[in-house]
Design a binder for these strands. Structure first.
Ligand SMILES: [Mn+2]
Ligand SMILES: [Mn+2]
Ligand SMILES: [Zn+2]
Ligand SMILES: [Zn+2]
Lengths: 141, 141
DNA sequence: TTTCAAGTTAAGAATGATTCCTAAGTAATA
DNA sequence: TATTACTTAGGAATCATTCTTAACTTGAAA
């Protein structure tokens, strides 16, 4: 983890390691506030401003990703693999959705149908819906 | 247009007609502010708060759509057909992207691979990238 | 037509998420 | 250890969005 941060050219600080570690641990696409609260116990002196700045720095340097939900809420994603998101409007859960097959279908499609004059950075697929039974998980297949 | 609003059960007011009309006219996925500015000339008495509220009401009643860009900016979309969005990070343009073929591919995929415990409201596909020549258009195929 | 209840609006205040500022602190390097 | 560039805490500022409320409209009914 130290190496990951150093690898970008960023200085390795205590704050950055704590925040990076926290995001990696949290697999539910946390908000800034959730990350801030998570680290409060062990590191009460790290300020909210630092959490904001650090997370954006990480996104900028490609260490983590950022997602906006359908409602415009900013959430962070430690998972850099290319994957889709299922968003539940009532519980506000984000469930990762991987499918090699779907990836291939979509990238294959855009290989045929070329998008001109655009350097594609990423393609995101978001499935929005409501959980039917809020106590059960969303599962695929 | 009057009928469209009335059809939802909402009362037909001057403000709603003006705002609805403005959004339909604007095919570039405007922000709240852009819509507000657009109607200022003819209707300087319609307040910004009303524009906010009215647009959200329209979204709620299914008259228009709302999109968040990769940067989290709220933009409105009069186009209710199912379509994807190409977002250019440097010019902030949103280009609509229709493809019957891609629609079928994706919906077909999720027919096979069933998502359990979720009532799907919509599936959004967003292609993010940078325009290569900012003065030329983004075109497909 | 007139009346009336329910719904809508303008204006401005309030909120709240995010960004900015700056002086003090720290990491990397030699 | 000294130097430099970068980073941070804390708090202020910004700014998009929401809320509040009194006045006004709409649409339906009498
Ligand atoms: Mn947040
Ligand atoms: Mn806006
Ligand atoms: Zn994810
Ligand atoms: Zn569109």
């Amino acid at each position: 983890m130290k190496e990951k941060i150093a690898g970008t050219g960023l200085k390795v600080t205590h704050q950055r390691m704590v925040i990076y570690d926290a995001v990696l641990q949290m697999n539910f696409h946390p908000t800034v506030e959730q990350i801030y609260e998570d680290i409060q116990g062990e590191n009460p002196s790290i300020s909210l401003g630092t959490v904001y700045k650090t997370l954006e720095t990480f996104v900028e340097y490609g260490l983590i990703d950022r997602v906006f939900t359908e409602e415009g809420v900013r959430r962070y994603d430690p998972n850099l693999e290319h994957h889709g998101h299922i968003y539940c409007t009532n519980t506000r859960e984000i469930v990762d959705y991987y499918s090699e097959e779907l990836n291939e279908i979509i990238t294959g499609f855009f290989k045929k149908r070329k998008v001109n004059n655009l350097k594609i950075k990423n393609i995101t697929l978001q499935i929005n819906g409501d959980k039917i039974d809020p106590d059960k998980d969303i599962t695929i297949k």
